[in-house]
Computed example of a mutant assay.
Amino acid sequence: MSVWIAIAVTAVGCYLVKLAGLLVPGDVLERPLVRRLAALVPVALLAALTAEQTFGAAGSLTVDARAAGLAAGALALVLRAPFLIVVAAAVLVTAGVRAIGG
């Protein structure tokens, strides 16, 4: 039963956050600082998700083949490679490290 309570609380919380966003005056949203912060929120969330998926395993910090793949993808980005090349480099390095490691 506690799962359904968690689902209900989450649903109500999401609705209240959406309602709070609708109640914010328009002039507040047009401020340059608010606009810059709003533009950075998706980047920060994606970076946090990437870090959690790369270095987290069973509630602990883990460095494995995924970290090597992330480094290869980051290097490809620094070298301004096209997106598909970035993904391919990350996949190939991750697979290679896993194959070498056993």
Rank of each mutant, 00 (worst) to 15 (best):
V12Q: 02
F55I: 01
L49Y: 12
G102S: 06
A68P: 00
P32G: 03
L61R: 02
W4S: 07
V12D: 03
A11I: 11
C14F: 13
I100P: 00
G69K: 03
L49F: 14
T54L: 03
R31I: 03
A38V: 08
T94M: 11
R98H: 08
A67V: 02
L61S: 06
R36M: 11
R66K: 11
L22E: 13
I5F: 13
L22Q: 14
V9W: 08
L75K: 06
A76C: 13
A68V: 01
D64V: 04
P25M: 01
A68D: 00
A39E: 15
I7N: 14
F83V: 12
G59P: 08
A89P: 04
V63N: 08
G56R: 00
A57Y: 09
E52K: 12
W4Q: 05
A81M: 12
V78N: 04
R36F: 10
D64C: 08
G73W: 02
L75E: 05
V91C: 07
L19E: 13
V17Y: 03
L46G: 12
P25N: 02
A74T: 15
V86D: 07
L45Q: 04
L23P: 03
A11T: 11
V43N: 12
Q53Y: 09
R35T: 12
A88T: 04
L23G: 14
A71F: 11
D27K: 08
F55A: 08
L79A: 14
V9R: 12
T50I: 05
D64G: 14
A11D: 04
S2H: 08
L40S: 15
A51S: 12
S60A: 12
A38R: 07
S60L: 03
Y15L: 12
V9C: 15
K18A: 15
G26A: 15
T94G: 08
A71N: 02
E52M: 12
Q53A: 14
F55W: 07
L37P: 11
T50N: 08
V41Q: 10
G26D: 13
V86Q: 10
L19V: 10
A6F: 09
V78S: 06
L29K: 14
V78G: 10
A90F: 04
V9I: 13
V93I: 05
G26M: 06
T50W: 02
A76T: 07
G69N: 05
R80E: 09
F83Q: 11
Q53P: 00
V87L: 14
P82L: 01
V17F: 09
E52V: 08
G59L: 03
R35Q: 14
G73P: 08
W4H: 07
T54A: 07
A81D: 05
I7R: 15
A88H: 03
V91Q: 03
T54P: 08
L37S: 13
A67D: 01
I100D: 00
V87T: 06
G73D: 04
R36V: 07
L75M: 13
G96W: 01
C14T: 10
A81I: 00
I7W: 11
A65H: 10
A68C: 09
A48H: 06
A44C: 09
A48M: 10
Y15N: 00
A8Q: 06
F83P: 05
L92Y: 04
A95Q: 06
G21D: 04
L23N: 13
G21K: 01
D27V: 06
L61G: 05
A99F: 06
L49G: 15
G102W: 02
V87C: 10
T94Y: 06
R80Y: 03
T10L: 15
P82T: 04
A57Q: 01
